[in-house]
Structure formats: C-alpha cells, structure tokens
Design a protein around this nucleic acid. Structure first.
Lengths: 195, 195
DNA sequence: ATCCTCATGTAACACGTTACATGATTAC
DNA sequence: GTAATCATGTAACGTGTTACATGAGGAT
C-alpha cells in the first residue's frame, strides 16, 4: 500500500499520469515514452521505475484499472486505463483555481552569480556554450511547432510549446547580450578578491 | 558523518553554500537569509534545517571552519568561513566547462497541457491569474534592478537578475497572447471528449 | 556478434521538505 | 499581550534517481 498523504491531494506526478492516461489507455512503458515526448520540457521526464510505482498507487486508489495483456513476440504487459473516479480526480484538480509557482533551478545561473570567483573568460565560455544549447533547443521546438500548427485537437500542446519557445528565445537574446558585455568590459583579466 | 558520494563532486547545494560564504563569513541563519535574498529566484531557497545539515557536511570535509560566538542578548551562534581548501573546491567546480541543463517544472503548464479535460474558462482564468503573478514578479525584479545598476561589484548578480527579467517578460507576452486566443476561439464552451 | 527495443520491477540512496522543539529579545 | 526575530537543530517522511536484474525479439 502506498503511504497515506497527510493532506491536500495527490502529488503532482500522479496527476501527470492521470492526465496522460486521459488521452487513452497505455502501458507503463508507453507512458514513459509519452511523457518524454509531451511533457518532459516543462514538467517531467520520469525514471521508468517511478512510472511503475505511480501506477501501482493509482491502481490501489481506484483511479486506474490494470489489464494484463499476454503477448507472444513481446513480453506480457499491463495496460492501464482511467476509471470514472480517476477522471473525477483529474478534473477536480484541474479546476482548483490556485496557480502554483514554477520550480526553476539553474546550476548555470548559480555559476554566473559566483562569477567573481573565477576568470571572466571561464564565464564567457560557459555563456557561449549555453547559447549554443539554446539554439539547438529552439530548432527542436520549431520543428515540433510545425507539426502542431493547424491541428486544433492539439491546441493545448501547441500553447505549452509556445511557452517554451518564448522562454528560450528570451534567453538567447540574454546570452548574446551578456557575452558582448563581458567581452567588452573585461578583455582578459580575472577577479579573485575575496572577503 | 555525511554519506560519501559515489562519484563526481558534491551536490550543487554544497557549492551554493560555499559560494555564498565566498562573500564573507556567516552563520547558518544569515546564510538562509542571504540565499533567500540572492539566489532564491534561480536556484535555491533552502529550508533552515537543510542549511545546518549542509554546514555540518562542509565542516566535516574541511571546506569551512566553524567558530562559536557567544552572545548575550541573542542566542549563541556558529560562524562559518571558507578554508583555502573550500575556496579551491569552489573554483575547481566553477571551472568545469560542462553546462548542465536547467531544471524547470511547471504545474501550471501541466494544467494547460491537459486543458481539454476542463472548461476553457477554467484555463483562461488560470492563465489570467498567472499573468498577474508575473506582473508582480516583474515589478519586484525591476526594483531590484534599480538597486543593482551601476554597482560594478555586483555585476554578476545584475546579470542573473536580467535573466529573470527577460524570462518573466517573455512569459507575460505569452500569457497575454494565450488569453486573447482562447477567448476568441471558444467563447464559453467545453471540450470533454475522451478516449 | 552486438546492440536496441520492449517490458517490468527491486533495492538503496540522496535530497529536500514539513513539523516540531526550544527560548530569549525586541518591536508593535 | 502578541508576534516576529534570532538561532539551531531532530525526526519523519516523500519524491525521485541510480544501479541492477531479467529476458526475448529484431535490427545492424
């Protein structure tokens, strides 16, 4: 049995799984693939083992049902589908008006923040690498955008993708500005004062 | 004794503490306050208890030294300062060229993504509330920006703050677009098809 | 031959949070 | 009087990751 939660609903992860199952029944394995494809960028790219644990919890709670499917050329699998109760839990949650703040954690920005403890070139190099990563990211998202545009049944996926694009484009501009400014301000010198 | 790490350096949290101590010696209590003020937005707003645990680990590792300070009108406290070894660990880490991806997790975007399982008005309302939150956020950051501008000793703090501003401004535009589009596309109707 | 995909899971661990405890001083 | 600040910590818990195990089928 899963640990009882003290108060206030399931962990967000559970709702993510319920939400993915609202698009149709799936195995744990397929759910992992779907999560990686759809919500990994802004929410969750789960470890395989966690998906299976989560599905056991949801089964125990009666929010999904498990169906064993025997296969011959592939390992047997368990298919999960939302119950009415699970659908209810999902839409109840979606309707909670409170908007929680995002979780954002950037080791990269921490390093920048601590920049005075290294040479400026080190920082510049890292911002430049970050800039390249962002460019690749943007290319990927733009490809995905093309496949989502003009498909009204995927409108909400499109909207969240747009958010990612906006964020990355803003950070691209930021990175370019920073590189220029640091290169100008300090052409080859280090701060290592401390105290 | 703290658990030995299997490989490859300390947790990022340790470097955050080392980094904050590079600005000067501090008590656990003061470190928490400093973290909340400086790096909370892009990295870390630690629980009090975690700071103290982290300081014990860093002491054990020889990266900081602990000095007991007796006080009369306040509880006694322990002041921590970086050792040479700690400074070395910090700058070694800063110089690692690998740029790790940010961690981003948005329950808000998950709800948007699952929007077809509720009424559109519910989604619109949440995006509108988010928009307001972002506006407040931007105001706070702009205030901070004013205090940081033209203070070259805080240049790196200024740069990270700019990143936050850019991100929030981009999300503000996104939110405004989304609200308009959803209101136009669907003036008061719900999708609840499933399967 | 070797690797990847499909498919599910166990065990151990690390990180971080919450709740709780203590207790004096200072500000409203 | 009540609350906030200063100051440090313990205990319990929940989440998520990593490493590992198994094993057949299909691709290169």
């Amino acid at each position: 049995m899963p640990p009882a939660r003290k108060s206030g609903g399931l962990p967000k992860t559970s709702y993510a799984v319920l939400g993915l199952l609202s698009f149709g029944e799936r195995s744990g394995y397929d759910l992992k693939a779907l999560a990686d494809y759809s919500i990994a960028n802004f929410f969750w790219s789960p470890a395989g083992s966690q998906i299976y644990a989560e599905l056991r919890r949801l089964t125990y709670l009666g929010f999904v049902t498990e169906t064993m499917v025997r296969q011959e050329r592939r390992p047997d699998k368990r298919i999960y589908q939302l119950t009415t109760s699970g659908q209810g839990a999902l839409s109840d949650w979606l309707e909670i008006p409170e908007v929680e703040p995002d979780i954002f954690k950037s080791t990269f920005l921490l390093k920048i923040f601590l920049g005075r403890s290294t040479q400026t070139e080190t920082i510049v190099a890292q911002v430049e690498e970050r800039r390249q990563q962002i460019e690749e990211r943007i290319s990927q998202l733009e490809e995905k955008e093309a496949t989502l545009r003009d498909r009204p049944e995927l409108a909400f996926a499109y909207i969240t993708l747009k958010s990612g694009l906006a964020a990355n484009r803003a950070q691209l501009l930021w990175a370019e500005e920073v590189v220029e400014e640091l290169k100008m301000r300090d052409p080859g010198q280090s701060y290592l004062d401390n105290g």
